[in-house]
Amino acid sequence: MLHTRSSLLLPLCFALGLTALLSLVSLASGPVTHNWQMLWQAITGEQAAASMIIWQLRLPRMLLTIAIGALLALAGALMQGLFRNPLADPAIIGISGGSAAGAALAMAGLSLLPAWPWLETLGVPLMAFVGGISATLLVYRLATRSDTGTSVVMLLLAGIAISAISGALISLLSYLSDDQTLRQLSLWQMGTLSRHSWGQVQLAWGACAVIAALSYKHRRTLDVLLLGEAEARYSGVDVQALKRQLILCCAFAVAIAVAITGLIGFVGLVVPHILRLMLGPGHQRLLPLSALGGACLLLFADLIARSIVAPAQLPIGVVTALIGAPFFLYLLLRQRQHLS
């Protein structure tokens, strides 16, 4: 049996422990030194430099990594439930594409304006958010009709189309922009955890709390939705309202994540998928553990990104793609064997 009848408590404790461990390792590692003594000195305040590095650089980065990982994995778990397909990823309905296009527009636009630092820090994330939400609403409007409801196939196809348009827009902007903007655009597209402020950390954690609470509230209806929309309705689920909420939830989660860190792919695909294999598809366990699993995966990926070419850093999106894309291929192969 792939999924056992175990309760939520044991896997939850394990995941919490793993998250805590990875967090500590993350705090202790960096380009300056890799040791626990420094961490201790920073906490006790013995050494001012260590204190500065830990509190101003590594702690916010660690907290941001946890929140973004959790957001992405939760969004993935919700999308897979909504589409009743374990291969679904927030990127497929065009949210990531829309967000990236919004960000690219802001970067290109800002390079033409005189440099105002506040515009730079606020404008790009805000436009990513606007782009993500509008892409989602557009996809949703395209795919939804008042009499028959949302067609999942149409939603997917519309998502592909929107992603293609976003991709073309980004390419065009890259082609037109100067060297500096081009570099900024490519960095953004690779995903980065190194631009972090306490404000962004708070924003990510706030969004994470909202999404986690909303999705956990729907844990049983999400299970019933897996039966199909008609049967969910016969079982007493207001399917249209649920779908609307889920789509907005995911749009919000992914837009916040992309706005702060750029494109970090595959976390939302890999984490819920592995957990489903281990614990079964029930959302009561899947949702909280996905959040923690996403945090763990991103903490781990960030450790690799920071240590493998130290003292330089790899973009985090490259690391998650290198871990995630082969996994995605493996899933596709498995599904193909299932089908044939």
Binding site: R220, V224, L227, G228, E231, S235, R276
Partner: peptide, 25 residues
């Protein structure tokens, strides 16, 4: 309660979990 002709369920719920889905409300 309505039993449709076909079901779309393809997630690995156990048999008793599927019956439990009928007990949402």
């Amino acid at each position: 309660a309505i039993l449709p002709q076909r079901s779309q369920l393809n997630f690995h719920f156990s048999v008793s979990e599927v019956v439990g889905l009928g007990l949402l409300h």
